[in-house]
Design a protein around this nucleic acid. Structure first.
Lengths: 97, 97
DNA sequence: TACTTATTTGCGCAAATATGCAAACATAAA
DNA sequence: TTTATGTTTGCATATTTGCGCAAATAAGTA
């Protein structure tokens, strides 16, 4: 396992490992349609700018996908990627010896 | 999903989401026998006290198990728990709608 | 007891992080 | 163009975090 890979995985886990960000993930989890930041803002009681920043971090780590539609930006959970990454991690820890 | 559960999951992910701690996890991953902190110290270039603190955090979150034997304390990866927790998280994110 | 070894804890520091507010931007609608 | 809406960014601040060092603690050994 290379240091760089470990760092990358750590960054992914860190992105999920914060209360408001994980709340956003679960919120998006229950949405069948893309959501904008204002809507997502309701799930955690913080300023819109804070949500914006959290979503940026989540997007950087491949947790959410961003779609630009005019002045609105909508976010969807990148379910496939998150699930894949978590399962790969679990498999590594299970099988490594 | 209750806030408390989210906080708990976030804490678990945060514990794994730091480079040195994740390095410790992978180090332990490759050890078939319990390791003491001095040995684990080698895998990340930090002071023993730092490793001690990291291991404490990992133990609190159920990532590693601590065994006291005289003056020595040995750590083993709680593979089962880590794998279970990660897979549950993956399943939740996969199936929630 | 004195000494050695392994680990934890207190302290301080520097860097990172989360947050709110206000201002800047971008874009759609009136 | 003006206005309204959604989002990002700059700034200031408070808190958290990771770290090293030295001292304290714990427990085995001479």
């Amino acid at each position: 396992m290379k240091d760089l890979d470990i760092q990358e995985q750590a960054n992914f886990l860190k992105a999920l490992g914060e209360f408001n960000r994980l709340s956003l993930v679960y919120k998006l989890c229950q949405c069948s349609t893309p959501q904008n930041a204002m809507c997502l803002c309701e799930c955690c009681n913080v300023d819109a700018s804070v949500v914006s920043r959290h979503l940026k971090i989540l997007a950087q780590e491949g947790v959410v996908k961003l779609e630009k539609k005019g002045r609105e930006r909508t976010y969807t959970l990148d379910r496939e990627n998150v699930v894949k990454t978590l399962r790969e991690l679990a498999n590594q820890i299970e099988n490594d010896l």
